[in-house]
Simulated scan of single mutants.
Amino acid sequence: MKLRKVTAASAAVLTLALTATACGSDDGDDGGSSSGGGKKITIGIKFDQPGLGQKTPQGYAGFDVDVATYVAKKLGYSEDQIEWKESKSADRETMLQRGDVDFIAATYSITPERQEKVDFAGPYLLAHQDVLIRADDDSIKSPEDLNDKKLCSVTGSTSAQNVKEKLAPKAQLQQYPTYSACLTGVQNKAIDALTTDDSILAGYAAQSQFKGKFKLGGFKMTNENYGIGLKKGSDLKDKINDALEAMVSDGSWQKAVDANLGPAGYKNDPAPKIGEIKS
């Protein structure tokens, strides 16, 4: 009886050892996830921001996508090893904390509140709150000219409220469900101006159907330091910072800005220095 028990125990140990060997992960994986035996990296982007992060029938496009792709290549991943995941603004910290993505590049402004929850590489773009108006509208030349004008932003956004509280108290706030709806309102003259980050405005205005119809005010009402979000303590931070510096130095950064945002007359600030956050 005792002999049979020892034999059964030995068999169980052997089975567990074989199972562990079969399920072992690829030790060569450099911070990314493994899928189907192949090396993968999962990156969060916006799917609905033209010029920045957009899912199209042809794939994924935009400045954030170009930055993320460049960084991934520097980390050792080819384009077909990237898995893109939609990262809505309200979900970004949770996605990073849960490990749903390896990093996020999605118009993600670095703020003290967010830095308590996640780490950031960068910044890689200095954006500013601005307004978008019709190309033939010469009545809005400064933020103060927004007084008595119909000013639109998306429902839940603080952009329009910031303008009303600090710069144009008589502005008539209009909330639409999407930036596209605001843009149509400006085009149809139901709205005088649309406000949010200038990079986002430029991305929408750069769409082929809108070329030449809108212009940016160039008011630079706030500083928005876009960074690449990472899980707290991620060992990818220094590697990503090195990749961002390389992207600037070899000209790829400016090329990506011009290709994605230039058609709207976007005048970008110089590439920010790593770790330099402008308040």
Results as ranks from 00 to 15, higher is better:
Met1Asn: 03
Met1Pro: 02
Arg4Asn: 03
Val6Ser: 05
Thr7Ser: 02
Ser10Met: 08
Ala11Val: 09
Ala11Asn: 10
Ala11His: 03
Ala12Cys: 07
Leu14Gln: 03
Ala17Asp: 09
Ala17Gly: 15
Leu18His: 04
Cys23Lys: 14
Cys23Gly: 12
Gly24Met: 11
Ser25Tyr: 06
Asp26Phe: 09
Asp27Trp: 11
Gly32Asn: 00
Ser33Glu: 13
Ser34Asn: 10
Ser34Arg: 12
Ser35Gly: 09
Ser35Tyr: 13
Gly36Pro: 07
Lys40Arg: 10
Thr42Tyr: 08
Gly44His: 04
Ile45Pro: 01
Lys46Gln: 10
Lys46Pro: 07
Gly53Trp: 00
Gly53Phe: 04
Pro57Ala: 13
Gln58Pro: 05
Gly59Tyr: 14
Asp64Val: 04
Val67Trp: 10
Ala68Val: 09
Tyr70Cys: 07
Val71His: 12
Tyr77Leu: 00
Ile82Asn: 02
Trp84Asp: 03
Glu86Asn: 08
Ser87Leu: 05
Lys88Phe: 09
Ser89Ala: 00
Asp91Pro: 01
Asp91Ile: 00
Arg92His: 00
Thr94Ala: 08
Met95Val: 02
Gln97Cys: 08
Asp100Thr: 10
Phe103Val: 03
Phe103His: 01
Ile104Thr: 12
Ile104Val: 15
Ala106Gly: 03
Thr107Ala: 15
Ser109Met: 06
Arg114Lys: 15
Arg114Ala: 14
Asp119Lys: 13
Phe120Arg: 08
Leu125Ala: 06
His128Phe: 11
Ala135Phe: 08
Asp138Asn: 12
Ile140Trp: 07
Leu146Tyr: 00
Asp148Gln: 12
Lys150Arg: 15
Lys150Ala: 05
Val154Gly: 06
Thr155Ile: 11
Ser157Gly: 08
Ala160Lys: 02
Gln161Asn: 01
Glu165Arg: 07
Leu167Phe: 05
Lys170Ala: 10
Ala171Val: 05
Ala171Cys: 04
Gln172Ile: 13
Gln172Thr: 13
Tyr176Gln: 15
Thr178Tyr: 00
Thr178Cys: 12
Tyr179Ser: 13
Thr184Arg: 09
Thr184Glu: 11
Asn188Ala: 14
Asp192Arg: 06
Asp192Thr: 11
Asp198Lys: 13
Leu201Ala: 03
Phe210Tyr: 15
Lys211Thr: 01
Lys211Met: 00
Phe214Tyr: 13
Gly218Lys: 09
Glu224Ser: 14
Gly229Arg: 01
Ser234Glu: 04
Asp235Ile: 07
Asp235Arg: 14
Ala243Lys: 12
Leu244Trp: 01
Met247Ala: 09
Trp253Val: 01
Val257Pro: 12
Asn260Ala: 02
Gly262Cys: 04
Gly262Pro: 12
Pro263Val: 13
Ala264Pro: 11
Gly265Cys: 08
Asn268Arg: 00
Ala271Asp: 13
Pro272Glu: 01
Ile274Met: 12
Gly275Pro: 15
Gly275Val: 15
Glu276Ala: 13
